[in-house]
């Protein structure tokens, strides 16, 4: 049972809260969402409480993350996109810290559940659609009309629509699958080490390779944890760009 690579994704309940037949109970997932928010908000608010003209280390990190996301958003969606800065920053921070917390042994990874990543992706797409229609009205539909000869349009418009519909799927599945697969792989290799070491000296020798792999994979997973948060934020910026400037 200890080696079951799926077990780490199990959701366990702390207390139940049943409403209309649906259970809204507080689970380990809810706990780690709360920890994620507390970590992000606590860090940023504490790091900037000194409001130093010359930043200390903590404040530097806060400022760097601010400028990192601000620059990504400004480069992708233009300076008009800055009105979505709190949204993009929250998404990035939530996904990044959620991923990173998942790297601690025995911690739950909130982004390893498709419903969470899908909800975040749908939130992004909803913001794009609502803001796109609010700002551009019907012209927002020009998003689906690429500037090509007219006879190609019947072919290309359906493709554009399909690609737009696929966005929340690809956005959510990318993050979910990366976190899920990474944690399963880590668990499998770590499980090999434990299983092999039960077979005495030969097993110990045999466990060296999966152990080294597990170490390497841990480093890789930290990279993936950051990269996926960055990818999520960058794609959000690109989709927001469509809402701001639908005319390609």
């Amino acid at each position: 049972m200890a080696n079951d690579p799926i077990h780490q994704f199990q959701i366990s309940k702390f207390f139940s809260l049943e409403l209309g037949g649906v259970d809204f109970g507080f689970t380990n997932s809810s706990l780690f969402m709360a920890i994620t928010v507390a970590t992000v908000a606590g860090f940023l608010i504490m790091a900037t409480s000194r409001r130093g003209l010359v930043p200390n280390r903590m404040q530097s990190i806060a400022e760097l993350s601010y400028e990192f996301i601000a620059q990504t958003l400004r480069n992708t969606a233009g300076s008009e996109g800055m009105k979505f800065f709190p949204f993009v920053f929250s998404l990035f921070a939530f996904v990044l810290v959620g991923n990173m917390l998942g790297m601690f042994p025995y911690f739950f990874t909130i982004t390893s559940h498709i419903i969470v990543t899908f909800a975040l992706a749908m939130l992004v797409i909803s913001v794009v659609i609502v803001y796109g229609f609010m700002k551009n009205g019907v012209k927002f539909l020009k998003l689906f009309v690429p500037s090509v000869p007219a006879w190609l349009l019947p072919l290309l418009i359906p493709i554009e629509i399909i690609s737009f519909v696929a966005r929340p799927l690809s956005l959510s599945i990318r993050l979910f699958a990366n976190m899920l697969a990474g944690h399963i792989t880590l668990k499998v290799f770590a499980g090999f080490v434990v299983t092999l070491s039960a077979f005495g000296a030969v097993g110990w020798a045999g466990a060296v390779l999966p152990f080294l792999l597990a170490v390497a994979l841990t480093a890789l997973e930290f990279l993936v944890a950051f990269l996926q948060a960055y990818v999520f934020a960058t794609l959000t910026c690109i989709y927001l760009h469509d809402a701001l400037h639908p005319g390609h």
Binding site: A34, V40, A119
Partner: peptide, 24 residues
């Protein structure tokens, strides 16, 4: 588990957005 996850995601992410947008 979807109901619970969605509810708590909405609560926590909403709170995070509020704290980011208004304070941090």
């Amino acid at each position: 588990t979807f109901g619970s996850q969605l509810l708590w995601l909405a609560i926590t992410f909403g709170l995070l957005y509020y704290l980011m947008a208004k304070v941090a």
